[in-house]
Simulated assay, not measured.
Amino acid sequence: MAMNPDDLSDLEVLDENTIVQALRTRYNREKYYTYIGDILVAVNPCKPIALFDEKQHEEYTDLVTRTQRPPHLFWSADHAYRALCNTGRNQCILVSGESGAGKTESTKYMIRHLMKISPSDDTQLLDKIVQVRAKNNPRLT
């Protein structure tokens, strides 16, 4: 078993101290995403990072299992999209965290990924979604 796995649920002991220590270690190694079972934990790097380019969109599209690539927001978005397409059932991605944690930016990246993988021709859909969110809650812009 890895000392610092991509999925912390693989650890023998999973308590608050272990989780915090593992997230800190991964953060110091510039690994900002970690799974804990079905949950993706994102730690805000508080700096620009190159994890959201065209290459990443391609690498996280149509993955059979999430273990094929390191943890990433795009896997969560892609997984929800594939579940929607395969089952026809609505899907939901819950983005939660404290103020300044990067929820809005994470959501924008996931929406961009959904725009890349969906057959929609509406190139301004992302802007429309962000505007609706801002109109309903001005703090989110």
Rank of each mutant, 00 (worst) to 15 (best):
M3I: 08
N4F: 13
P5M: 02
D6W: 03
D7W: 01
S9Y: 07
D10F: 07
D10Q: 12
L11P: 02
E12Y: 03
V13N: 07
V13S: 12
E16W: 11
E16Q: 13
E16H: 11
N17G: 14
T18F: 11
T18E: 14
I19Y: 07
I19C: 09
V20Q: 15
V20R: 12
A22G: 05
A22L: 04
A22K: 07
R24G: 13
R24P: 06
T25I: 10
R26L: 01
R26H: 05
R26E: 03
K31N: 09
Y32H: 05
Y35D: 01
I36G: 07
G37L: 01
I39C: 11
L40I: 02
V43P: 05
N44D: 09
P45Q: 07
C46N: 15
K47Y: 05
P48M: 07
A50K: 14
L51T: 03
L51V: 01
F52P: 03
F52Y: 14
F52W: 08
F52L: 02
D53K: 09
E54G: 06
Q56K: 11
H57K: 06
E58W: 14
E59D: 14
Y60G: 00
T61S: 12
T61R: 08
T61N: 04
V64G: 06
T65N: 13
T65Y: 13
R66T: 01
Q68V: 08
P70Q: 01
P70S: 06
P70F: 04
P70R: 00
L73T: 01
W75R: 00
A77I: 02
A77E: 00
A77L: 04
A80C: 12
A80L: 04
Y81V: 03
Y81F: 15
Y81K: 06
Y81I: 04
A83H: 13
A83D: 14
L84G: 09
L84M: 15
L84E: 10
L84C: 09
C85W: 04
N86R: 14
T87Q: 08
R89V: 15
N90E: 15
N90Y: 01
N90L: 11
C92S: 13
I93P: 06
I93K: 05
L94T: 12
G97P: 05
G97C: 07
E98H: 10
A101S: 15
K103Q: 07
E105G: 08
T107S: 14
K108I: 04
K108H: 02
Y109L: 08
Y109I: 01
R112Q: 12
R112K: 12
R112S: 09
H113K: 06
M115I: 09
M115H: 09
K116T: 12
I117L: 07
I117C: 05
S120K: 04
D121Q: 14
D122R: 08
T123W: 04
T123N: 13
V130W: 02
V132N: 06
V132C: 10
R133T: 13
R133E: 08
A134G: 07
N136H: 09
N136Y: 04
N136C: 07
R139H: 14
R139I: 03
L140Q: 11
L140N: 13
T141R: 15
T141D: 14
